[in-house]
Nucleic acid binder design. Structure first.
Lengths: 203, 203
DNA sequence: TGGGATTTGTTCGTATGTATT
DNA sequence: GAATACATACGAACAAATCCC
């Protein structure tokens, strides 16, 4: 969970590698915003503040709109098929395996970004999707992902019909809904909010 | 120059630090796209391909439009002053110090992004601006930056007048011009390619 | 093709800094 | 407030891969 200490020795033992390897991985995760690091105090799982979370979602929206704009102009039949297959995977996972469903929901966006063909864009989308997952873990209460799957389908449908603006609108709507589910539930749960703020300054 | 080998020992000696430090820095620069790394073959200064360069400029455009959109809504008088001061610095440097002028031209965009208040956005802008500089070094022939300064001034003017759309248009125009200067000087075929791609997504 | 020199990948020990009792 | 325990930062040295002649 966010805030947990990531001791190099412990992780190294668990994965059977030395501290050196762990250090390089932690450094990369720090660069990606998934772990916090303080000099001489080591790494913890990142605890994004509410304002950081807002920044992530705003940036994510900006990036994914560009992804959709590109795809609307160049998406192929093969692309559509692999997107459709992915959504079907999501549907199946949603029934029996909650954690797989969460993972697949994120991977849908990563798939879209990689199909866009812009590698820089794809890397940034990958990053903000990962950070979004962390934010969901921190602020959101558990909820069904049925609606997400529906929204994914709507994005695909708009792309299939070649309606770029509708696809962008569908993505906007979807990401706003995700951000709502993530951030709004926290404002109604002030205890948790205050607790996490205090945790930040306590360590 | 792009493609040059970055031997860990050599760099460590030059800066008086051990290989450990150099390795972590190289890893970070690799993550930022400024150096290439291959397993067991070490690091070189990145040599972005033309298609990678296109990806960088397209993503940069997408990010900086968001920066301007934000600023158009919340820019303060202090912000405007520091932007204006920066352009004046650019003007002075342009007369007598070419390399400082190039550096300042990039820093103008970084300043804009930091004033936007979105730290995630600002980090990504920082990255794509650095990569743009590398691309300029690789593909562009030397040229005066007078026009860049003019274009920076136009962006500021539009922001001061509270005209968000004009500011976005000015930024679009500026970045297209920068991409042109960078990529077109290699071959005129590819030039038209880039321009049409950027046109499509940016107006 | 082969062998020596160079460079990278990794481990591990030591010193420094931090938390705890 | 000091001492102990612990974690991290750094560097030296070794092993493996690569390069070059």
């Amino acid at each position: 969970m966010p805030g947990d200490k990531l001791t190099e020795d412990v992780i190294g033992d668990r994965f059977g590698v030395s501290r050196t390897i762990v250090r390089t991985v932690l450094a990369r995760l720090y660069a990606e915003g998934l772990v916090d690091m303080q000099p001489n105090k080591g790494a913890t799982i990142a605890q994004p503040s509410l304002s950081e979370a807002q920044d992530v979602f705003e940036t994510r929206m900006c990036l994914e709109r560009q992804v959709i704009a590109r795809l609307a102009e160049k998406v192929t039949e093969d692309d559509m098929e692999s997107l459709q297959r992915h959504v079907e995977l999501e549907t199946k996972a949603n029934i029996h395996d909650g954690s797989a469903a969460i993972r697949l929901a994120g991977e849908f966006h990563i798939l879209l970004a990689s199909l866009s063909g812009n590698k820089v864009l794809a890397r940034y989308v990958d990053e903000v999707v990962s950070r979004s997952s962390l934010i969901l873990a921190l602020y959101s209460r558990p909820h069904s992902s049925d609606c997400s799957i529906n929204e994914h389908q709507q994005i695909i449908d708009a792309l299939r019909q070649g309606d770029g603006q509708a696809a962008i609108d569908a993505m906007d709507h979807h990401l706003k809904a995700v951000a709502d589910r993530a951030l709004l539930s926290s404002t109604s749960d002030k205890h948790r909010d205050i607790r996490s703020i205090l945790d930040r300054y306590a360590s």
